[in-house]
Design a protein around this nucleic acid. Structure first.
Length: 633
RNA sequence: GCCGGAUUAGCUCAGUGGUAGAGCAACUGAUUUGUAAUCAGUAGGCCGCAAGUUCGAAUCUUGCAUCCGGCACCA
């Protein structure tokens, strides 16, 4: 008599070998299960469960369950598309965060009007409640089958599957797709909680050199409520869009005649400088020395540095009389020029050279995005010139600085990746071995856990990448630290060692924020424009209720200004509700409301952006509070 | 760079071949107001740019530019 073991360790005798869903019924498992883990491996509910197997059911709400639903949804999408658009080839259709997509090969692209039609057909397929069945095929049969159906991409994919792996296909009605599974027992269980969201071009196997494909994205959830919540959350995220807030808060604008460059308006520039000065104060504590280097260099420098060979396609280059000039895409070669002035002793190392360096990169037109991805940007850059035995210590110190800064800026969590040698690179494998080893050692000694990001290093060296998570869960790569043995060699930088010999320094390229433009975009979206007081471009608006309190309002305003608080005064002939609404919409953190009562008693009523209540304080107290709270960390 | 979509007043958007519209903002006046929109009036447009079709184009066609969503690339 066969048996199975449930998660709690109990052994259940069965009359005969049963399928997953039959066992679920027998054990009165919850109704919302989508698959079954057999000895820890996810499988179909419609498969037979072997004797003495350990059985755990997967519910639709849990991570694995959602993945199965989403993957099912991708199959239903593919079936719907093939029914509506015959001769469309299927390629890949994975589950992704919040949903799924499917890439199709088709001559005519989909249009937005197609989505509702396809979605309608998907619901029909769900309502057909088709059984979903798994079949194991031989490689030859599978290739033959897909070829006969005109599915060239599927056939090609099968031929790249390792020989020791079995070929499984899933069938629902007439639709058959290659897939490892698991899947639901039938299409009906998918339910209604899905929606097609966008269309896009893509490339076969993600490579721009390959065939162009048409991608359809969708979102899919365990319940309709979850779908509704997700769509609502997307709407909320849109309200944080830095491009929208940048306009409504009067921070910056962009225009056609200067594509990829930012026009900073007074308030935005205040924000920018506040952030820049914060960085300046932090690196000063770590013995950095700030410099300023040219933007424009002769081609010969870029040839020496290797940029001409490895980075030329991203550089702005032009000819002026007999000279070929390029705007710098990075600051490193310029910093080496300062390092090379005079003779450097080992005693001078480590030498930490910082610059808010303005760089230009000719980014692909399709990649530009608000102020987050521009062609003219400023890095919080620095290069640490040091001896090899100082690399580990410098890396640790940098990690401490970065932790502090991310914390201060409202990002307590970050993760680390180590990106190693890329295909297109300068230097020998020996040098790369050395650089990668030392970086692994350094990050471990800094006490940070990390993962490896293969092949993503800079052309001159491996790098640490620091990723932070914003308030709505998105992840951004900001900080970086790169170990470089190559640039000092190429640009002939040296120092005099203790024994009097000439040696090459190691260069650490490092940034905490990355680009100020991009980081400000992230900050705007992270806070939804509601900056902490120290960052807010306008910290306080003083608003009077009637003309009777205008003189007092002016007095309060002037006192705030005296203390260096960024203040505006609003004595317009408008109702206080109107003023409050307007300043709240432009995200001013504090409104000092003054009427005749406040004027008589030398008080202010403080209204915070976050709250509905007001605090009534004496003016002296209020000033003290604001000054305290507005202090830069 | 690739695939789609969009481009109309400062902003958000109507307007599918026949005299360019609304709300908000702006300006002017009235109102002196107590915690997220006081009322009335005025002004504001080469309908992204360029060609074409047509008696006639914001509207149809083509090209270009920019923006948006993805892809690819990436700070």
């Amino acid at each position: 008599m066969p048996s199975i073991i449930t998660a709690d360790g109990a052994v259940h005798q069965l009359p005969k070998q049963l399928k997953g869903y039959e066992i679920a019924k027998q054990l009165s498992a919850p109704k919302n299960i989508v698959a079954v883990k057999i000895n820890g491996i996810p499988g179909d509910l419609s498969g037979l469960v072997p004797d003495k197997a350990k059985v755990e059911f997967i519910q639709r709400e849990e991570f694995l369950g959602l993945e199965i639903l989403r993957h099912d949804c991708a199959h239903v999408l593919a079936q719907a598309v093939q029914e509506l658009f015959p001769r469309t080839q299927i390629t890949f259709g994975p589950a992704i965060e919040n949903g799924f997509y499917y890439d199709f090969a088709r001559d005519t692209p989909f249009t937005p009007e197609d989505l509702p039609k396809i979605e309608k057909r998907m619901h029909e397929i769900v309502n057909r409640n088709l059984p979903i069945t798994r079949h194991i095929w031989t490689r030859e049969h599978a290739i033959q089958f897909f070829k006969s159906k005109g599915e060239a991409f599927k056939a090609e994919h099968i031929s790249t599957i390792p020989a020791n792996e079995e070929i499984s296909v899933y069938q629902q009605g007439d639709f058959i797709d290659l897939c490892t599974g698991p899947h639901l027992p039938n299409t009906g269980q998918l339910g209604k909680a899905f929606k097609l969201t966008k269309i896009s071009g893509s490339y076969w196997r993600g490579d721009a050199k390959n065939a162009k494909l048409q991608r359809i994205y969708g979102t899919c959830w365990a319940t309709e409520q979850q779908l509704k919540d997700y769509l609502h959350q997307q709407e909320e995220a849109e309200k944080r869009d830095h491009r929208r807030l940048g306009r409504t808060m009067g921070l910056f604008h962009l225009q056609e005649e200067a594509v990829g460059s930012v026009f900073w308006h007074p308030k935005g520039w205040t924000l920018y400088r506040t952030l820049e000065n914060y960085v300046r104060s932090q690196i000063a504590h770590h013995d950095y020395r700030e410099v300023r280097t040219p933007l424009l260099f002769d081609k010969s420098l870029w040839e020496k540095s290797g940029h001409w060979e490895k980075y030329r396609k991203d550089m702005f280059v032009f000819q002026e009389e007999e000279q070929i000039l390029a705007l710098k895409p990075m600051n490193c070669p310029a910093h080496v020029q300062i390092f090379k002035q005079g003779i450097t002793s080992y005693r001078d190392l480590p030498l930490r050279m910082a610059e808010f360096g303005c760089c230009h990169r000719n980014e692909a037109s399709g990649s530009l995005h608000g102020i987050m991805r521009v062609r003219s940007f400023t890095q919080d850059d620095a290069h640490i010139f040091c001896r090899e035995d100082q690399v580990v210590g410098e890396t640790i110190a940098f990690c401490r600085l970065l932790e502090k800064m991310y914390h201060d800026l409202g990002f307590p969590e970050f993760t680390v990746k180590l990106a190693d040698r890329p295909a297109l690179r300068a230097g020998t494998d020996d040098v790369w071995d050395k650089a990668e080893n030392i970086l692994h050692e350094a990050v471990k000694k800094a006490g940070l856990s990390y993962t490896v990001n293969p092949g993503e290093g800079a052309f001159y060296g491996p790098k640490l990448e620091f990723y932070l998570k914003d308030s709505i869960g998105r992840v951004w790569q900001c900080g970086t630290l790169q170990v470089d043995y190559i640039m000092p060699e190429r640009l002939d930088a040296s120092y005099i060692a203790e024994d009097g010999s000439k040696k090459r320094p190691v260069m650490l390229h490092r940034a905490v924020l990355g680009s100020l433009e991009r980081f400000l975009g992230i900050l705007i979206e992270h806070h939804g424009g509601r900056f902490p007081l120290w960052l807010a471009p306008v910290q306080v608006v003083v608003a009077n209720i009637t003309d009777a309190s205008a003189v007092y309002a002016k007095n309060v305003y002037e006192q705030l200004q005296q203390l260096g608080v960024r203040t505006e005064i609003d004595t317009r002939n408008e109702k206080i509700t109107y003023k409050i609404r307007e300043h709240s919409e432009s995200k001013v953190p504090l409104i000092f409301v003054v009427g005749t009562r406040e004027a008589e008693q030398q008080q202010v009523a403080i209204r915070r952006l976050s709250g509905k209540d007001q605090d009534i304080l004496s003016l002296a107290e209020a000033l003290k509070h604001v000054q305290q709270e507005a202090k830069q960390p």
